[in-house]
Structures are given as C-alpha cells and as structure tokens.
C-alpha cells in the first residue's frame, strides 16, 4: 500500500474525521436497508453496488479525455451514481419485459454490469500506468487512502440523504410495509419507489470509497437484518438499524487500521456479520429457555 497507514500516525484529526464520516455512512446504510429489505430489494441493492464500477471507470476515462484529470472526485461519484441507478432500473425491467424470473434477471444484470466494470477497469489500468492502484482500491474500500476532503464530501452526501429519508419517513414506511394501503390512500407509489431507489444509490455511492464496491451491499442489508431481532415501531427498528450500521462501520475502520493488509470493506462486513451472529445466538438461547420454562 502506497499511502502511509493511518495507524502509524495515531488517532490524529484525520482519523477522527474518517471515523465520523464512516459513522454517518453506516447509520444511513442501516436506515435505508430497513426499507430495502421490507421492499424485498436486497439483491437489487447488490447489483446496484457492483454496478458502480463501470460508472467509476467511465468517469475516469471521461476525465482523462476532457483533461480535467481521471480521478476528479465529483466526476467519479456522478459516474457511479449513473450506472448504479441504471442497474437498479434494469433488473426489474429485464424481469418484466422478457418474463425472466427475478433471480435470473438479477444474476444476468450482475454479470452485465460487473463484467463491464471488469473490462473497463482493465482499460483504465492500461491508462493509469503512473498511478497504480487508484481505482483498484474502490473494489474493497480503503479508509486509510481516503483524504479528509473526500470524507467531507461523502459525509455531506450521506447527511443530505439521511435528512431526505427522515423527511419522507412516513411515506416510505407506508410503501415498504403496506403497498396496498399506500395505493388505496392515493400515494404515488411509483414515485416513492423511485425515491427509495435514489436513496439506495446515494448510499452505495457515498460508501464505495470506504466499504468498497463489492461489499457495500452488506452494510445496507446486514445491520437492517440484525435490527429485525428487535420489535417495536418502524421508527424504533430503523433507528436500531442505523445504530448497528454506524457501529459496524466505525468498528470496521478501526479493525482495518489495526491490521495493515485488511481492506476496510471486508472488515466492516465482518463486524456487521458479527453483530448479526451475536443477536442470532442471543435470541436463539432466549427461545430455548422460554421453551424449557
């Protein structure tokens, strides 16, 4: 790894900033995930995450061609958002238009977008011979290589998305948990669906530098699934999911800074999965005791 490890510099101002940014992203991912799972969109989220790769590569090539530099952050974010959005639309379209099962359509879309990403990445790598490892880091994420300017951008994006989610919480809840009811009340179900997709894409894009393109979906699904162990109002479950998301993200960054070779994405995923496993074991034991007593 070329960038100096943050672990070496101690808990500096930059580290605090990165941790804060990760916390905000994790909270957003958990909150959005609650709705994604309720809408049965988990695997579409997986495709959307992977589909950021061709967008990033196209943005890089466009930046090079326009002589504004391949790694212009806002350009990469826009590129990723475009292809992730396209993929989120493509999966249901493919399934409807050709009467292919949802699972088949998901697998085909994943092959298409991530395959295209692989091809474009190899093209980019033949271009960026001087700056090796630039875009490759996006695959599994790297908190250590994220500059404080990047963190500020990502955190701002995540915060805006989180506020949008909070403002439209009522409508999204209705959509996710009782679509029929939403229809009878005359809510614009299609627009709300699009809105949820936009929130998902914003989450994926905000997280790709930290959690990585390949595993960012786990930050959306796993904390929200863990929150399912808890009961209560939709707001409570969403808040718990956000809490688990933030905890997993922060914990993942700390772990990946500790072990030099461990990329941030897998570390975050393992932390989220660890929390899930704990909750699973705790409730299973609780159940067994309840049965015995």
């Amino acid at each position: 790894m070329n960038a100096p490890s943050l672990a070496a510099t101690g808990l500096g101002a930059n580290t605090v900033l990165v941790l804060l940014g990760c916390g905000i992203f994790g909270a957003l991912a958990g909150a959005v995930g609650t709705f994604v799972i309720a809408r049965r969109r988990s695997l579409i989220a997986d495709v959307a995450g992977h589909a950021a790769l061709p967008g990033v590569c196209l943005a890089f090539l466009a930046g090079e061609a326009l002589h504004i530099g391949g790694r212009t952050p806002w350009l990469l974010l826009i590129g990723a958002a475009c292809t992730a959005l396209l993929a989120a639309w493509f999966v249901p379209w493919l399934s409807r238009r050709f009467a292919i099962g949802a699972d088949g359509a998901t697998a085909v879309s994943l092959a298409l977008f991530f395959g295209l990403g692989a091809v474009l990445l190899s093209l980019v790598q033949s271009h960026e011979s001087g700056s090796q490892g630039g875009l490759r880091r996006l695959l599994f994420g790297s908190a250590a290589a994220t500059s404080s300017a990047d963190v500020k951008t990502l955190a701002a994006l995540a915060l805006v998305t989180l506020v949008a989610l909070a403002l439209l919480f009522k409508e999204l809840s209705l959509l996710a948990f009782d679509e029929q009811h939403a229809r009878t009340l005359g809510f614009p179900v299609r627009s709300l669906d699009l809105l949820l997709t936009l929130l998902l894409v914003a989450t994926v894009v905000a997280g790709m530098q930290l959690a990585g393109i390949v595993l960012v979906v786990s930050m959306v699904i796993t904390p929200a699934a863990t929150a399912r162990f808890f009961h209560g109002s939709i707001a409570r479950v969403t808040a718990i999911a956000a809490g688990f998301g933030a905890a997993s993200a922060v914990c993942g960054v700390l772990v990946s800074l500790e072990f030099e070779h461990l990329p941030t994405g897998p570390a975050m995923t393992l932390c989220a999965a660890g929390l899930f496993l704990l909750a699973l074991l705790a409730t299973t034991r609780g159940r067994a005791e309840a049965v015995q007593s």
Partner: peptide, 19 residues
Amino acid sequence: EPGASLGVVFTAFFALGVA
C-alpha cells in the same frame, strides 16, 4: 426475504475469505 438472508450470509463468507 430470501434475498436478504442470502445477502447477509454470502457477504459475510466472502469478507471472511478476503480477510
């Protein structure tokens, strides 16, 4: 939902593999 349970498990396995 089947997708979510699959997603939780396979991302965890893959992350473990990469680690």
